[in-house]
């Protein structure tokens, strides 16, 4: 899997957030998106994941040198960010079942239990998400992002709301993930950057 972003720019309320960003990244690496608060890290993450369109420029994903059509890209993407919430009124299980079914996954129940266990949420499957603490919600978001075994993982603020044990766990998972897949991470944290192989600076 290869990401190729060419000359992407985004205007927000008629002011440029960033201009003419060009970069590439391949599976087996971690790309870090850096920049001060309000600089457009999140905007860039959402553009790279095809959630919103850039004002100009192109983002393409290649698998075995063949471009993946835009309407099929979401199958390969896992996304985790503070603005990407799960349904608070539903239980964790109801959430994950809904997402698995709508993604046409087969035999997803054991995968759900396995990931819930790995992220230390075993036994809380039937509780409504709104009863979770913020750290547990962040863990649950990792389960949601990884459940369909995506080839590209977007993580916006990987450690927000997590305790020390949670952070260790997440680093483990991400380190493991980026061995053969593409990890894209938006952060300002120096510890997070130890994972990064490449950097894109927004708005300097």
């Amino acid at each position: 899997m290869k990401l190729s972003a060419k000359k992407i720019s985004k205007d927000f309320a008629e002011k440029a957030v960033f201009k003419n960003l060009t970069f590439e990244a391949e599976s087996g690496t971690c790309l870090a998106v850096l920049g001060p608060n309000g600089s457009g890290k999140t905007t860039l993450m959402r553009i790279l994941s095809h959630l919103i369109l850039p004002t100009s420029g192109t983002i393409e994903y290649f698998e075995h040198e063949r471009s993946i059509p835009a309407e099929r890209i979401f199958q390969h993407i896992g996304f985790l960010g503070p603005y990407l919430e799960l349904y608070q009124d539903l239980s964790a299980m109801e959430n994950l079942q809904f997402f698995s079914k709508i993604r046409s996954m087969k035999n997803f129940e054991p995968k759900i239990f396995k990931l819930m266990e790995r992220f230390g949420l075993k036994g809380r499957e039937e509780d409504a998400v709104k009863t979770y603490s913020s750290g547990m919600k962040q863990r649950l978001k990792y389960v949601f992002a990884l459940l369909h075994e995506p080839k590209i993982l977007f993580v916006d603020e990987p450690r927000s709301n997590l305790d020390e044990e949670g952070i260790r766990l997440v680093y483990d998972v991400l380190q493991d993930y980026k061995k053969d897949r593409l990890l894209i991470m938006a952060t300002n944290d120096i510890d997070d950057l130890k994972l990064a192989d490449m950097r894109v600076q927004v708005n300097v």
Partner: peptide, 16 residues
């Protein structure tokens, strides 16, 4: 309002 529009967008098509 619950910031789930993006989540939903990630998992399914607009027509559904």
């Amino acid at each position: 309002e619950t910031h789930t529009a993006d989540t939903l967008k990630l998992v399914t098509t607009s027509s559904s």
